[in-house]
Design a protein around this nucleic acid. Structure first.
Lengths: 126, 126
DNA sequence: CGGTATCCAAAAGGATACTG
DNA sequence: CAGTATCCTTTTGGATACCG
């Protein structure tokens, strides 16, 4: 996710900027967030529960990165208790759809991958 | 790339196996390797030079992971000095084409992302 | 509720030296 | 040439505590 604890930004951002967007989109939690939001908007905690086993910190970081890249829209309602809704922008929807296709492909081809792994492993542990 | 210095495999592989394939395919070096091999087969060092600034270790790990997943074919010629050619399998070509599409999308939309980032940054450093 | 701040453990990744 | 092995640094990510 290319965001350290200190929140620096300029170090890695300088070189090859579009590689970074790709990394944000295909990052561990980025993928899951985008695919979820493709379905409907989610609140923060709702998203956290839906994804499961993601820490608050990582979800926050992921959402902030995606928001900054213009892929996710953050709608913070000024109520108490706070309520924040996340949804995809047009740009985010384009990205999410491609990511979902890739995820579906891995689903469809999983059997082939598993077979390949087994063959690979057996070939070197005789 | 989910392969530590010790080369363990079973720890993470147990849960959600298709997420791992996705991570291999979209990993930092995985993306670059797949896109290069889409063009033509490459030798190890040739690939290393083509990608640039990738360590031997990471290239080796990436290639081994992709080979094990059945995406890359490794052809080691028994000659001296050694010569090893890497190419895509049918499965690998399918994956690589989707990854390339995603990479092209980030290229096409880069201007939008950059604009979004600038707006985001300006909004919070007044 | 929806975060931020801090600290710490684990994993990724690079540099170097060595080998068949 | 195409790796493997080792060591070390950097980054990632989780746990916890606290705040508006």
């Amino acid at each position: 996710m290319a965001v350290s604890d200190e929140g620096r930004r300029s170090e890695a951002e300088a070189m090859c900027p579009h590689r970074l967007v790709l990394e944000h989109v295909t990052s561990r939690w980025g993928v899951l967030v985008l695919i979820r939001l493709l379905e409907r908007p989610y609140r923060f905690s709702e998203l956290r529960r839906a994804i499961g086993r993601v820490s608050e910190k990582m979800l926050t970081q992921t959402l902030q990165t995606l928001e900054r890249d213009g892929l996710v829209h953050r709608d913070a309602k000024p109520v108490i208790p706070p309520r924040v809704d996340y949804s995809l922008t047009g740009l985010g929807r384009e990205a999410a759809e491609q990511v979902r296709e890739l995820a579906r492909w891995t689903d469809r081809r999983m059997a082939d991958v598993l077979a390949a792994r087994q063959a690979y492993d057996e070939a070197r542990t005789p």
